[in-house]
């Protein structure tokens, strides 16, 4: 426990981490607020249309008669869910594939890596467009979108994990572990996992960022989730489609944009500070000792 506290304290000294955590916690709070929303997220015309921010409606209302603030709480919640599902699933896949391919080597390794490479080389947007067009119905559910996105983001991380394992395999403590009677599975699990978890963690955070970005882009194209379900992407898309700017309803458009930017920056700062903390070399430079 003492170690964990020391860890947090250290991390907090990096102001980026501190800011990121604060922003993320606030957004999380917003998401939780959605459970207390007085308005149903998908029904329209519940309140007066197009009102600017006021005491009654903190962030104003949209042209569709929805309270922007409460819509935002749902949007943040759903976007975070998608992001989380995507990252969790793709991390698990990446871990299994990376560890398996790295330690086994040989044909399964090459096959897996080729599959991974192909998913990386294909220009994602176009592929997602194709899939989304055809799977329109299936994609309406949040978790399915997460699944689809996860399928396309495990490849890079698996490669990173695999190369880590390849280099770990040649280190002397691996030989010693084998000589201590450890079997393959147990060796990889107990000896290598502590080395890999830090990477998996940072890429998890990056993956979340990417997933949200993808969700927003897909929503803009009208693909992806059911447009009436509020996510940051659908909010944005609704605002644009209804010409929020031309109607002068800037608050309707700006809210999802600002929320998105905050989310991206917070996640990015989080991942940078965590990865710098975990990789001592980077930390070295931060302190300026490299000079």
């Amino acid at each position: 426990m003492r170690k964990a506290r020391g860890l947090f304290y250290d991390l907090f000294r990096d102001h980026r981490f501190a800011v990121a955590i604060v922003v993320l916690l606030s957004l999380l709070f917003l998401a939780l607020l959605s459970f207390f929303s007085p308005y149903h997220p998908q029904r329209m015309y519940q309140v007066a249309r197009g009102c600017p921010p006021s005491w009654e409606h903190i962030l104003g209302t949209s042209w569709l008669g929805q309270d922007v603030f409460w819509q935002l709480t749902f949007a943040v919640r759903n976007s975070l869910i998608v992001a989380f599902v995507t990252s969790a699933i793709s991390r698990v896949i990446a871990l299994f594939v990376g560890m398996g391919a790295g330690y086994r080597g040989g044909t399964p390794d090459r096959v897996l890596m080729t599959i991974g490479d192909t998913t990386m080389v294909l220009p994602l947007l176009v592929v997602l467009v194709v899939i989304s067009t055809i799977l329109r119905e299936w994609l309406r559910y949040l978790s399915n979108l997460g699944l689809l996105l996860a399928f396309f983001s495990w490849a890079w991380d698996a490669r990173v994990i695999r190369s880590q394992i390849l280099s770990l395999r040649e280190r002397e403590f691996t030989f010693v572990a084998v000589l201590s009677g450890m079997r393959t599975m147990r060796l990889v699990w107990k000896q290598y996992l502590p080395h890999i978890l830090p990477i998996a963690l940072t890429t998890f955070i990056n993956n979340m960022s990417w997933a949200i970005g993808m969700e927003i882009t897909l929503a803009y194209l009208g693909l992806g989730i059911d447009p009436t379900v509020p996510t940051i992407g659908t909010m944005l898309q609704a605002a644009i489609y209804r010409q929020a700017l031309f109607l002068g309803l800037w608050w309707w458009l700006l809210t999802p944009i600002v929320a998105a930017i905050l989310l991206f920056i917070a996640l990015y700062w989080l991942s940078v500070s965590v990865s710098e903390y975990l990789d001592p070399r980077a930390r070295f430079q931060r302190v300026g000792l490299g000079r």
Binding site: R171, F173, V176, A177, S180, G181, Q191, H195
Partner: peptide, 24 residues
Amino acid sequence: QAVFQNPFESFNPLCAVDDIFFET
């Protein structure tokens, strides 16, 4: 059994030294 050249490399830097003893 074997003993290797680099004592620091012979042990996993992220695990306690006595771990491998118990393993054996």
